[in-house]
Design a binder for these strands. Structure first.
Lengths: 363, 363
DNA sequence: GTGAAAGCGCTAACAG
DNA sequence: CTGTTAGCGCTTTCAC
């Protein structure tokens, strides 16, 4: 090409044979296919991106050549170049721990919601909630993504980094002491009241609560709802009826055992989430008691396995699809700088789903 | 700084006031903090990355300034620059549908395995398996990631693109007609034989099979194991006992109902996976029958909810942690070009877990 | 120890 | 319609 310059001082390319000193494994670049097509890189770029300024048949020819050579556009380079014009990537980041059923539902809902907006989603899942998100990924997310949805935030410092870097962020079921950010969550307080009242209405007086992970706001709200409803019904508040189920089966099992071992055991258990409800039921049945014959159990979340495993679990349904949509919408609003988005906290209504694990107490 | 050049032709920066024409929202760059610290960008880069060539206290000073200014290194730019030296990103991509319990287990195991290797993981989940992975994310993955683990591959063309682009890839529980790539999976055939023989050993003669999604190799292998074991035991092969459970509850329920409605219904059901086993149990109980009293049910996978929901499900355990490790290891081997990695297909042993849903048939 | 140069692969913005 | 120039933010030379 423009090789008839004044003798270039140091020979740049070691082997100026035919311009292709690319290692075999390397991917072809715009320049490569431009050379092959006998045009400039820009023409190729324009052709490949469907911008106008290229005749239809030239475009076709270029596209054919590109695909033959196995060209794929270098996302990183494109993004860097685009950074000038502040273009979006169309990708939304999600930080979550996806190994619980609850997470599965949320991530799934998010996924649909994101697609409905014509975007895509990348999720980062850290096995150990105590650890920070490692630098690499966080940086990648920071620069590759239009915004972040945090499902169960972890260590605050991560979020500070993101927040400081100006990445739009919204939380789903946020932590109590988390960085301040807009959020969306189901009405945990209302749901807890509803669940407790359901049990009371059935005639139960001795109602235990399997509390969730206390860091989470939702767990605190559910506890509050439980206590308030008990009080409102004039029932005794018994500390020994509040066990720590930690939102997970491993904690819920021993907690349930302890409940059963009480001198005056409860006749009903309100579990902080479905996973612990299921664990409670298993524990109760292993102890030779029946559900709901001897003890009623109600859960919270209505994850899909609640219906499917054995007879249906009575529970409080979280509107997962709506939560997903709301979170995505909020994120987009935030990004657009829409008024009030930055301090909005959405609470979505829940619903009692009566199935087969609650009944009046045995007399 | 070096502003006493010969008059620069067009005024590059519209407002040459004090070099900071950066829009307020924009993140600071190396140059910004270099200017603030009164050094060159390189010095800052070296200081921030802990490379030597910077005195200890200068480094500290620079780091302080950087953190005060809220500097975060631009991952995209770094990556582009690094591309010359072919450096790794330390991030492994996973393509999966995480909304099934099985996926949860796999992704979770992968996550641990990846961390044990000192790397991280980003997962892409598409709601609809039929759709292609959209371009954006695929390109991002292609360039941002050291390799891809495909859990349940989807449309072949996606994988062609990745494969063509030279991204190392391994499959977990691959599709039947998928792009050829190394894989790791549990021994579905062996497990199916084991499950079927367990039922036979208990005295069952009328054993039905709830087949999985037929595109998947694992589903085919399980069906084969079921048939072979039946034949080996001299039992009749009855087509009407092979129902389509599709690996999911929505399909398993009607399939089970059909099985129950047969004039000569089975006394045992081998479900292709735990999700369909649970659905089968629920269906059976709704029909007023008991498990395992009237009908025995055995699942496959041993996802954690199999133990927790109600009384334990008898099932075939997949070694999820080992699968995760093997997949990651294989990917790394592939990347290193280790011999044989490209054509390796690992099959990991499974194990019968007897719990409470299988028993001898009622006479 | 520090500074200047060039370039990763792409695109916006003009010039022809 | 096509070509040239400059630059995204960083790092790797190689001089000083």
């Amino acid at each position: 090409m423009s090789d008839d310059q004044t003798a270039s001082p140091p020979p740049k390319r070691p082997a100026p044979e035919n311009q292709r000193t690319r290692s075999p494994g390397a991917r072809p670049t715009l320049a490569d296919i431009a050379q092959a097509a006998g045009v400039t890189r820009m023409t190729v770029s324009n052709a490949l991106n469907g911008r106008d300024g290229v005749s239809a048949d030239l475009r076709e020819r270029i596209r054919t050549i590109a695909s033959e050579m196995g060209y794929v556009t270098n996302w990183v380079a494109k993004k860097l170049s685009d950074s000038r014009s502040g273009a979006e990537t169309g990708i939304i980041g999600v930080i979550a721990e996806i190994h619980t059923p609850f997470m599965g539902e949320v991530v799934s809902a998010l996924s649909s919601a994101v697609r409905d907006q014509g975007r895509d989603m990348l999720v980062y899942s850290l096995p150990d909630p105590a650890k920070n998100v490692p630098g690499n990924v966080l940086d990648l997310l920071l620069h590759a993504v239009d915004g972040v949805i945090a499902v169960i935030p972890r260590d605050t410092s991560d979020f500070h980094r993101l927040a400081t870097a100006g990445v739009p962020m919204v939380a789903v079921d946020r932590l109590n002491a988390s960085v301040e950010m807009p959020s969306v969550a189901a009405d945990s307080y209302g749901g807890a009241c509803c669940a407790t009242r359901h049990l009371i209405a059935l005639g139960h007086r001795k109602i235990a609560f399997l509390a969730g992970e206390t860091r989470r706001l939702s767990a605190q709200e559910r506890l509050r709802g439980y206590r308030d409803s008990l009080r409102a019904a004039g029932l005794l508040h018994r500390p020994e009826y509040e066990a720590d189920g930690g939102y997970e089966p491993q904690l819920a099992r021993p907690a349930t055992q302890a409940l059963l071992a009480l001198s005056d055991p409860p006749t009903a258990i309100f579990a902080g989430n479905d996973a612990s409800a299921l664990a409670a039921i298993a524990t109760i049945e292993e102890a030779g008691l029946s559900v709901p014959g001897d003890i009623s159990v109600i859960g919270f979340d209505d994850v899909s396995l609640a219906v499917q495993g054995g007879r249906g679990l009575t529970t409080i349904r979280q509107p997962f699809p709506e939560i997903g949509c709301a979170a995505v919408q909020l994120l987009l609003d935030l990004r657009e700088g829409r008024a009030g988005a930055a301090t909005r906290h959405l609470t979505l209504p829940v619903e009692l789903i009566e199935r087969a694990t609650t009944a009046p107490p045995r007399r």
